[in-house]
């Protein structure tokens, strides 16, 4: 916990800084906020609210990413013990990575990494 104290202090400072700048702007700005601004897409009024279910064509990439991301969670602690565990730990980790890479290459060959 002691370790984290400076980080928490800095978090407080960061929050205060942002709040302070915003408060300062409240005092200094020439006018109160402009409300109900139409979104800009070229000057003509939009027909619908832009918040919509955005079609994410790269969803396959998120799956690939997720697989690697889980792997990372193992790899961070692995860095600490690999020297003691010896070659076995290296083979296991990089074997695992090779499997994942094979998956990526397959996805690539199938065109999953291209979406336009």
């Amino acid at each position: 916990m002691d370790e984290l104290t400076p980080a928490l202090v800095l978090l407080a400072i960061g929050v205060l800084l942002v709040a302070g700048v915003r408060a300062l702007a409240r005092i200094l700005s020439v006018a109160p906020p402009l409300t109900n601004v139409m979104p800009h897409a070229g000057g003509l009024p939009p027909l619908e609210h832009p918040v919509s279910r955005f079609h994410v064509r790269w969803y396959v990439v998120t799956m690939v990413f997720l697989a690697f991301d889980m792997e990372m969670i193992f790899m961070y602690p692995w860095t600490l013990v690999v020297a003691q565990m010896g070659p076995a730990a290296v083979v296991e980790m990089f074997g695992f990575l090779a499997l994942l890479m094979a998956g990526v290459l397959y996805a690539w060959r199938e065109g999953a990494l291209r979406w336009t």
């Binding site: 897409a41 070229g42 000057g43 003509l44 009024p45 939009p46 027909l47 619908e48 609210h49 832009p50 919509s52 279910r53 955005f54 079609h55």
Partner: peptide, 24 residues
């Protein structure tokens, strides 16, 4: 303003469509 409505995309999936005038 209305909310976006569904429409078929190029792969035949029903997806939200936004009508946007781009420019000038």
């Amino acid at each position: 303003l209305a909310m976006a409505d569904l429409g078929e995309d190029r792969d035949g999936l029903a997806l939200d469509q936004l009508h946007v005038p781009l420019g000038p």
